[in-house]
């Protein structure tokens, strides 16, 4: 288990990390970046799995099932959409290389 104050430190450091990582991103990458971070919060899947694994009655099972289903959608959808968008970014040089081969 995570001690309360250690969790607080994690919260703080992670927040600054997120801020720093994003702060110098060129505008051109805003969409893939947002959709990439959309994929990253799909980590909620592991929490949803543990919660469903712990479900003891029908109500909990239904909620847990929905949680895992939604989280899995977040993970897969986030990955597929980000990957598709990033695959399209090319420079003029890439294009010339591509057309020659």
């Amino acid at each position: 288990m995570i001690n309360g104050f250690i969790a607080l430190y994690i919260f703080m450091l992670a927040a600054f990390t997120g801020y720093e990582v994003i702060s110098r991103v060129p505008v051109i990458l805003h969409t893939p970046l947002m959709s990439g971070s959309n994929f990253v919060h799909g980590i909620v899947l592991v929490g949803a799995m543990v919660a469903l694994g712990d479900a003891r009655n029908l109500a909990e099972q239904i909620i847990g099932f929905m949680g895992v289903l939604l989280a899995a959608g977040n993970v897969v959808g986030g990955y597929v959409s980000t990957e598709r968008m990033l695959a399209m970014f090319k420079t003029s040089q890439d294009k010339h290389k591509g057309s020659r081969t």
């Binding site: 994690i10 927040a15 990390t17 919060h41 980590i43």
Partner: peptide, 17 residues
């Protein structure tokens, strides 16, 4: 902890954006 870190990084990045 993985959820805390990943969630918070996204939360901060998203707020900035």
């Amino acid at each position: 902890a993985a959820m805390i870190i990943a969630g918070m990084v996204v939360g901060a990045a998203g707020t900035l954006l």
